[in-house]
């Protein structure tokens, strides 16, 4: 068995919930715990964790970023596998800081644990937004589609220009708010036209942007992290 391949084993995974997920979008973290525990894995939450350093790194505060990345390694270095419901944080940890024991949730499930059907049921039309960092940094490929494809009752709708950025980009959304909003509008247009009842993605931060713009436009389409959909079970 190759290193990092945990097929058909019960494993112990450390959850890196991210600063954003801890504070603003805790449901994605709770859903991540629910899915992994349902599959028989043990999830631990090292309480010393805070932030991976991406915010500072991407904003030009390199010294602070490196300090936070070193801190991350102290907290998580001892674990074989760390899971995070954020491709953006995982991508930064890997590419900028050379941390390699961290997996984005869909990557861990499909690529490492070899699971596609997590036993979820979600009878709704869903639009999946491919976030930039899941496409081009962590390169999760079709993992999220395999997971969504196995969800009972879920109908996946196609989004045109699926590989185009939603305009979040961290501080970009504030520093270049006008361009960011123009990007969000184009994304909202295709989501609304798709007939989706829900928009999902691997990154809560991108969903903050998409959901925030959808709400302001008066759209009824809510956003949910992929983990939240995977955590839904058929009501008994």
């Amino acid at each position: 068995m190759s290193e990092g391949d945990y097929r058909s084993q019960s494993v112990r995974v450390a959850l890196f919930v991210t600063c954003f997920g801890d504070t603003i979008a805790p449901r994605a973290g709770r859903a991540t715990v629910a899915v992994l525990e349902r599959l028989g894995h043990e999830v631990v939450f090292p309480e010393a964790q805070t932030c991976c350093g991406q915010l500072h790194w991407n904003s030009g505060y390199e010294r602070e970023a490196r300090r936070l990345a070193r801190r991350f390694e102290r907290v998580f270095g001892g674990f074989d596998a760390v899971v995070s419901p954020s491709s953006s944080c995982v991508g930064t940890l890997r590419e900028a800081f050379g941390v390699h024991n961290v997996y984005e949730l869909s990557e861990l499930l499909v690529g490492r644990l070899g699971v596609e059907d997590v036993g979820a049921s979600f009878p709704h039309r869903v639009a999946y937004h491919s976030t930039c960092h899941s496409l081009r940094m962590t390169r999760v490929g079709d993992a999220p589609f395999r997971l969504l494809g196995a969800v009972r009752g879920l109908e996946l709708v196609h989004l045109p220009r699926a590989d185009e950025c939603c305009g979040f980009g961290g501080t970009f959304a504030v520093k270049n708010a006008d361009v960011s909003t123009a990007m969000a509008d184009d994304k909202c247009d295709v989501i609304e036209a798709s007939g989706a009842e829900v928009c999902t993605a691997l990154d809560s931060s991108c969903l903050l942007q998409i959901g925030g713009r959808l709400a302001r436009r008066g759209s009824a389409v809510p956003t949910m992290h992929l983990a939240e959909i995977l955590a839904c079970e058929a009501s008994a």
């Binding site: 919930v17 997920g21 801890d22 504070t23 603003i24 979008a25 805790p26 449901r27 973290g29 709770r30 939450f45 309480e47 959304a173 504030v174 520093k175 708010a177 909003t181 969000a184 903050l208 942007q209 959901g211 925030g212 713009r213 709400a215 302001r216």
Partner: peptide, 25 residues
């Protein structure tokens, strides 16, 4: 302040009433 640049065109999800770590504990 600077976050007005966000809220001019987008709603902002508030900090969750209960953080993940509080829920975990």
């Amino acid at each position: 302040g600077p976050l007005a640049a966000w809220t001019r065109t987008r709603d902002l999800a508030p900090l969750a009433p209960r953080s993940f770590r509080d829920w975990w504990r």
